[in-house]
């Protein structure tokens, strides 16, 4: 279990309420998406299936998730150095969001850290691929950088 210092480190960069988060911008705006989204979005939803980049497990079907930009801190999915701590990570800003956990085809939820649950692949358990704040049951985020689109 993470000690207090670790928890704070994980929890503080994440705003608990996405609706009030000044960082959040819908689709376009100051936080310009760094990739070409035209292929990935159709009618405001994800145009392609979202799958695990490691084992291809299907996470979301096409047409069920909205694209949002929001700064969310996620621990690294891969070990980048020997010195890397479990709490090291990066801020990611491009996400798919769904409002009901049963929208997912396959996904795993970690135990709660602070108020956060990390989303992982349900099959190979690689992750975190996304994030959920337990105080807001209507938002489940999947980071575009952590998954494949097929």
């Amino acid at each position: 279990m993470a000690d207090k210092g670790d928890q704070a480190k994980v929890a503080t960069p994440m705003d608990t309420d996405a609706a009030k988060d000044p960082n959040q911008v819908g689709g376009s705006g100051e936080a310009e998406p760094t990739r070409d989204m035209t292929e990935l979005i159709k009618d405001g939803k994800n145009a392609k299936s979202i799958v695990c980049e490691r084992c291809n497990s299907k996470i979301l079907l096409p047409g069920v998730a909205e694209f949002v930009t929001k700064e969310i801190f996620l621990p690294h999915m891969k070990k980048k150095s020997e010195q890397q701590k479990a709490t090291d990570g990066e801020n990611l800003s491009e996400h798919w969001v769904v409002s009901d956990m049963m929208t997912f085809e396959n996904v795993g939820f970690t135990n709660t850290v602070g108020t956060a649950k990390y989303l992982i692949c349900a099959d190979c358990e690689v992750g975190p691929v996304g994030w959920h704040d337990v105080t807001d049951k209507t938002k489940y985020f999947i980071a575009l950088d952590r998954v494949q689109h097929k």
Binding site: M101, N106, V107, G108, F109, T110, N111, A122, E125, V126
Partner: peptide
């Protein structure tokens, strides 16, 4: 697919949707 036992999640898995 072979499961990597090293993957053992440090935080632990609470539940899954399948």
């Amino acid at each position: 697919d072979t499961f990597d036992p090293e993957q053992a999640a440090t935080i632990g898995v609470d539940f899954k949707v399948k």
